[in-house]
Amino acid sequence: MKNKIYPNFDAAVADVPDDITFMSPGFGNVGVPRNLLAALNRQGAKNLTGISNNAGAVEDRVQIGILVEARQIKKMICAFTAPTHPSRITPFVEMYNNDEIDAELVPQGTLAERIRAAAAGIGAFYTPASVGTELAEGKEHREINGRTYVLEYPLPADYAFIRCWKADTFGNLQFRLAQRNFNPIMAMAATVTIVEVESEIVEVGEIEPDHVHVPGVYVDRIVKIPPDGIFD
């Protein structure tokens, strides 16, 4: 069975080219692939399109905002293009207001389902979310059984950067509690899936098949977070 372990984060992202689309999970600061984002920041790939719930937060911790601030990202596809609290002006918000970065605002459930659809080989789907609002303007609508829906398309990516709790050498993954969030669907929707592992990488067979959250067939590269890595 293929051993997918990479020695460090820099090696795991070394070949990420410019102009690709990538997915970065995380919600409420949990399940964010901080080490891989930091490595991508060091690696310097640019002209990227990012798919993530947020476009960065006001904080010191590493998150997608460091790539925005470093101008490695040309466009964000996310559920927040303005802060929930008006006083929290992120680098993204400033750049977006100055037309220095592009963005597509997607309702969070539609974002998740578009990612899942890409993973699942679904051509498109209809959702009731956003019907009757500005975000549904210009989109195809259809009435199904008396309810109006709007057509939404899948959202695939070239790369997904994933944060998990435990993995085996083949890339079977387990998550802890709310760390799961976007991680499984993003791991399944990207062409190349790179994972940072918090607790340990065990031998194949040590994770019960029933306890696998993401099958290793979706995972290409795994890196254990070393003691000097970013754990929080």
Binding site: A79, A82, Y96, P107, Q108
Partner: peptide, 8 residues
């Protein structure tokens, strides 16, 4: 401000 915070 441009954009919005639609979330879920």
């Amino acid at each position: 401000r441009k954009g919005g915070g639609i979330g879920g």
